[in-house]
């Protein structure tokens, strides 16, 4: 029906739709497109007054030769690997276990408690963990005391802090990240289990030979989706759990960009680091999108 109308007439007919769309477009323009265009300052010496001077790759050269950047990149990769690779099987195991529960009440209780931390802010979570790990009054050191170990200040201990990040991430996301697997488990046909029952299979055998293979597609999808965000090692978490004693082992790209950019006001240099992260991130996300489309027919968009 619209084919017969000229473009101008169609636009005039749909002017109400453009009006409805306008606020979102204005938002995208101001808070996304303008700042993305503004990233050109990575190639300039930014000046608050007067024109900025084009300096080519100067800031990138500085960045790549800076020892602190190498350290930050290493931290990002290590922390991300812990959170993506090491953490990966945990929600799967959790979902499988929840699936074995026969008591509805227990199942509901376990799920309700396990999803809860996902909705707490990282400030709250950091507060909870700082208190729990406190060397003087925290629960963790109380437990250490019970088995005869001396108290340890986990938050300021360089060899512990990354594990604190891993553990608190697990605490926050174990339950929530298992939802996607639980949903997949509910789609498995009961007839598969019924025939296994006839063959006298044990619960463990059914998990190994039926459930896990049925979950494979979901696992692949989750894993590659996570890879797309590999350079986001968790800004809010690190920002709230970091302190001067451990900064050298937990400083990640995003906290580095913040510190260099907004605290030290090295605008162009910081934006060069942002752009580096953004470019790698873009490649990862596009790669992820294509990989996910191939694996499951479902892309990111």
């Amino acid at each position: 029906m619209s084919g017969a109308m000229s473009l101008g007439a169609r636009i005039r007919r749909d002017r109400m739709l453009y009006l409805l769309l306008a606020p979102a477009l204005a938002y995208f323009a101001v808070f996304h497109l303008v700042p993305i265009a503004g990233m050109v300052m990575a190639f300039q010496d930014y000046r608050i007054v007067g024109p900025s001077r084009f300096v080519g790759l100067k800031h990138f050269k500085l960045l790549f030769s800076s020892p602190s950047f190498a350290e930050v990149l290493r931290n990002t990769l290590v922390i991300s690997s812990m959170k993506i690779i090491l953490f990966f099987p945990l929600p799967i195991a959790f979902a499988l276990m929840v699936n074995e529960l026969r008591s509805r009440a227990l199942r509901k209780f376990v799920q309700a408690t396990a999803y809860l931390p996902h909705f707490l802010s990282w400030v709250v979570i950091a507060g909870v963990w700082i208190a729990f790990l406190s060397p003087s009054s925290g629960g963790m050191n109380k437990l250490r005391g019970l088995v005869g170990l001396a108290p340890l200040d986990y938050m300021t201990d360089k060899s512990s802090i990354r594990w604190v990040l891993f553990a608190s991430e697990t605490w926050r996301s174990l339950g929530w990240d298992s939802i996607i697997y639980l949903a997949a488990l509910m789609r498995i046909s009961p007839s598969l289990y019924e025939s296994a029952d006839l063959d006298g299979a044990s619960a463990l055998q059914k998990t190994w030979y039926i459930t896990l293979p049925e979950l494979r597609a979901t696992m692949v999808t989750v894993f590659i989706l996570n890879l797309g965000f590999f350079l986001n090692a968790g800004f809010d978490q690190v920002f709230n759990m970091m302190n001067d004693s451990v900064i050298s082992v937990v400083d990640i790209l995003d906290t580095y960009v913040y510190r260099i950019g907004l605290l030290n006001m090295q605008y162009s240099f910081s934006t060069a680091a942002s752009l580096f992260k953004g470019a790698i991130g873009l490649i990862l996300i596009l790669g992820t999108h294509l990989a996910s489309k191939r694996a499951s027919g479902k892309g990111l968009w």
Binding site: L25, F28, F31, L33, I36, G261, L262, L282, L286
Partner: peptide, 22 residues
Amino acid sequence: LFMVLVIVVMVLEPGLVPEYLV
């Protein structure tokens, strides 16, 4: 065109400093 814009917004993360300056 609008959908392309939505995807651009989704995959391109503006840097912290440019957002701050805006």
